[in-house]
Design a protein around this nucleic acid. Sequence first.
DNA 1: GTCTATAAAGTGATAGAC
DNA 2: GTCTATCACTTTATAGAC
Lengths: 234, 234
Amino acid sequence: MSAVAGDSKVATKQRLIEAAEALFADEGFDRVSVRDITTKAGANVAAVNYHFGSREGLVAVVLTRYINPVNEERLARLDILERRVAGKPLPVEEILDAFVRPFATQVRRSELSEKLFFKLMGRMFGQQGCDLPPVVENGFITMLNRFHKALAKALPGLAAEDVWWRIHLMAGAMIHTMAHAESLQRFSGGDSGNPTLEQTLSRFIRFAAAGMRQGADEAPDDVKPKGPQVEFPF
Amino acid sequence: MSAVAGDSKVATKQRLIEAAEALFADEGFDRVSVRDITTKAGANVAAVNYHFGSREGLVAVVLTRYINPVNEERLARLDILERRVAGKPLPVEEILDAFVRPFATQVRRSELSEKLFFKLMGRMFGQQGCDLPPVVENGFITMLNRFHKALAKALPGLAAEDVWWRIHLMAGAMIHTMAHAESLQRFSGGDSGNPTLEQTLSRFIRFAAAGMRQGADEAPDDVKPKGPQVEFPF
DNA sequence: GTCTATAAAGTGATAGAC
DNA sequence: GTCTATCACTTTATAGAC
């Protein structure tokens, strides 16, 4: 059950967090005021400062609440997979599954709708620059380096640098797809259908695995693509 | 040359636009005040309202200034390619080249550094919801439908719905990669190297083309991936 | 823990002189 | 087209009563 105004069984602190999450997902971290949050939560204007010290403190709590569990579950899943193959390379699909499936786990833990949850994830993971709390930033570094290692082992034909860029491309595809599913509906005029979460994960894994594997056994990545290179008069 | 405070040869209106672009790229559209912009441009506080009617008017100008040329150049490039093959399908790489190369064209037209320009593009294309001016929104719809058609023809094994989702994944990879190149550097500890723009485009095209093509001749996209589906205790 | 009242600063916008 | 002065409003934060 979602905690909003009038739901006085749930502690104020919790109601504030959940109201903030919903508002941040919808409007972005910058467009939501403390008053918006306390009103939605049915709390007093001073409640945010009492419970979180400041608006910034609440933002940090919201940022940490899902990102860290997602990154930890990613590592735990990768651990399980690697224990099973005992040092051998893993199939790329399995590694990518460990990378995205935690979202499906965590969305069930949250009070948000699937749609709002992924919008919030998109805003968080798509954040520019360094406004992530240090503990979150470090969690990313640890997690990404483990996945880099696993993917480099799975794709021995690729240079370390290329593996990093493909991780970046892969993560971008995931974040954007989750955050902007409604844009796709708008742009396609509804022709993109109404897939389940599982179908979307499957689509992502297939797309990204093919991209990760591309040419891994042949040419290095910095060879020119065979595209046309038309001279263009702009 | 960049137009900032003191550069009185350039018209105020132009200086305001360029100052706004740089600030929006760095901090996001919401965190920049009218005063920030006029100060950076060396203009009077009232200048934004005089020249653009309101802060919102300036934002709309900035949003339209590059997105529309990018989308139009995409269409023009696709036109040239299609004229050459006279109704036959195009190689996926050539279609994707037409999709991303306009960024390389437009970055040269702008006063921003390559890094700032792509950060700005990332903020624009990554915008949630409907705060795009209608002319921009419609430009997207037209452009994306043309690319959908070209890609569907190039990938006859795919359902229309799957083509839409792969376009979405592909565009997400591009936007995120361009906007967050510095995050990759931070997360990889510098191991992602210092590729040129051309190398980055090439990496993107190869990755995305492989993803677009995945299984296009065999199974439909909604088949379960062969990943492990481990039961996970969360 | 919750509330009211209020402080202190910042916001976009505008009228009117030059 | 530029400037000053100012308005009306919102923002975060806090002191102090309950």
